[in-house]
Structure formats: C-alpha cells, structure tokens
C-alpha cells in the first residue's frame, strides 16, 4: 500500500481507460498520457493496463507501506527519496516507510507513478480509472487527498534500477519548437463548413492553452474561427481528441473526461498517436495543428506501437541478462 501525504491539484488513479461503455453515456477516462502509463507498467513487468497515479500538479509526497518497485514516467520532474534523486522514466525500489517527494515539473504536465503489481482499486465497469463526472472508479470516484491509503497488488516484478528513453525523445516531432506542441489532426465532419481563409487561420495559428484546460478538455485561445454559417448539429458521439468550435470561435479539444456526445461543429480530431502530447502540454503553452491523412495517422500509431514494443523487448532483455548472471 501507499499513503498520500501531500497532493496539489486533482491527482487521480487511472488505467488506460474504460472503452466500451459509451452506450450508457460513460466516457473513457484513463491516463491523459497513455504512452507514459504503459511505459511505467512495462518497466515494472505489470499488465500494461495496470492502474497508476496521474499527478498534474506539484508538490506531491507519498509514503510506501512496504518494499516495492515503482516507476516515474511522463513529465520531467525533480523527485527524490531520502536524498536520493530519482531520474525521469526510471524504475527504482523502495523499502517500507520510504517517502517519495516530487517538487518541481520543469517540462510536461502530468507525472505517472506506477507500482509493481499496480494500484489495486476495484474494477468498475471494466476499468480502474476514476470517472469524475459519475463519481465512480479509481479511489472512491474522486481526486486523491492527503491520508488516502491505496492498496497495491502483489507483484513478482524484479527490483533492479532501470531507465528507458522517454517517449518525448524517441517520438519527437522534427519541427517542434521548445514552447510549442505540434499535434497531427485528421479533419472532421464540419471542416468544409469553414471557408478557406478560416481553415488557413486554424492551421497557421499558434493556439494558447488557457487555464480552463483540464482532463475534460483543452480550451484554446486565438483568432476566432467561425463557420460560414452557424452550424447546430444533432447530438452525436464524440471521442477524446475531437476539436469542437463553439460559437465564440475558440477551439476546445475534448480530452479523457469529455462528454461522450456533443453538437458543436467539429473541425478536426487529434490522432491517437498524438493525444498524449496534448496531455503533456502545459497551461499557458502553445499548440499548433498539422493536417494529416487517415493512413498517415495509422502509420503514426504504428510508430508509437513500435516504440512500446522496443521498450518491452529491452526490458525483457535486461531481466534475462540479470537472471543469467
């Protein structure tokens, strides 16, 4: 078990998500950076869908209730245990009573703490992810608070120190500036409802991520992008990544806790291979959209899968080498 000692902002228990309950109005929830959560679980020899803790704000402090392996992935952070610095994208081992302190997050927006065996909260409707709107899943359906004691499943994971290359390094986009996140999008149903000049404006603008951005959605600020004539759709299903344009012309990217349906016009959808980049984009930062074709979006997913497959292979090789010694 682990005990939360100090928490800032809405930290929560998340696995990869709840994907087959849309027909009851239940969205996916799940890690905003699913690549980082998977990587942490791979490092620990866990099922990749094992639940971890998503930490969006610092400081954060917790105490380990027994010997166990853990990993930190996602955002770059300054973390330490009893004066020992824990590098990012790193697996380590702690003893009973050890305290992990995470102080600052120089890059990225969400840190993932995974533990050997995973956070052992009950499966609700097929997932351990916190469903904030429905107040179920995760830890009592709510953000973590100081004093919460989370159960951890038993684990046979090995305990040696091990680091891996961060997704942001391996999967870096060639044209990305330091303060700007570029995400690839496939155009959506109402794209043609915007005239050419407005479409150009959408692609060329550097969109500011407003403070009203969270797990529900990223609300962006920039020049008003308005359709040729007002579009009022009949309500239909939407998924994380869909970029809606409400009448004020300011785009909203639907994220993991988004509503499962909507009626605002959709200009484009962030591809699955880049949704984690949005999850790691910071408030006040900039986003730019790059148009991509469906087949290229599938190729980008394959690239992401290949990165994860390399991680699996490397971690397995390291374990085998250790066993042989």
């Amino acid at each position: 078990m682990i005990e939360i000692l100090s928490v800032t902002g809405p930290a929560s228990v998340q696995d990869l998500g709840r994907f087959d309950q849309y027909r009851f109005g239940v969205g996916t929830s799940g890690a905003m950076d699913d690549v980082a959560l998977r990587a942490g679980n791979i490092l620990l020899g866990n099922d990749e869908n094992a639940a971890g803790i998503e930490i969006p704000m610092l400081p954060f402090k917790l105490r380990f209730g027994r010997d166990m392996a853990f990993a930190l992935t996602g955002a770059d952070v300054e973390a330490e245990i009893a004066g020992r610095v824990i590098p990012p994208w790193w697996r380590s081992h702690v003893g009973t009573g050890d305290i992990l302190t995470v102080k600052t997050m120089p890059r990225g927006a969400r840190l993932y703490l995974t533990v050997g065996g995973g956070i052992d909260v009950p499966m609700v409707l097929g997932s351990r992810s916190t469903q904030f709107r429905g107040e179920f899943g995760g830890w009592h359906g709510r953000p973590l608070q100081p004093g919460d004691v989370l159960p951890c499943a038993a684990s046979s994971a090995t305990i040696g120190e091990l680091g891996i290359e961060p997704a942001g390094t391996t999967l870096a986009r060639p044209n990305a500036a330091a303060d700007e996140t570029i995400v690839r999008v496939v155009i959506a149903g109402e794209y043609d409802g915007f005239d050419a000049a407005t479409q150009t404006l959408f692609w060329s603008s550097s969109w500011k991520i407003t403070p009203q951005s969270n797990r529900y959605g990223y609300r962006l600020q920039g020049p008003a992008v308005k359709p040729k004539a007002p579009i009022e759709k009949r309500s239909h299903g939407i998924v994380p990544g869909v970029i809606q344009i409400p009448p004020n012309g300011q785009p909203i990217i639907q994220m993991r806790d988004a509503q499962t349906s909507g009626g605002y016009p959709k200009i484009a959808t962030v591809i699955r291979a880049d949704l984690w980049r949005v999850g790691q984009a910071r408030l006040g930062g900039k986003l730019r959209f790059e148009q991509t074709a469906y087949t290229d979006a599938l190729a980008a997913e394959a690239e992401m899968s290949a990165y994860l497959e390399r991680l699996r292979t490397n971690v397995r090789l390291v374990e085998e080498t250790r066993t042989c010694r």
Partner: peptide
Amino acid sequence: ALGSHPGYCYLGGMDPRITMPRRQT
C-alpha cells in the same frame, strides 16, 4: 439515445416552438 455523461438521456418529441440555440460558450 444515451450520451454526454453517465445515464444522460437525449429525448425526442420536443415542440419546435421552444427551440433555442446552444450557448455561445
């Protein structure tokens, strides 16, 4: 249909006289 959030129901049959466009924001 169900959608939006857990358990929410979209209803058909409203009289069009009380139609009002969704919010600007």
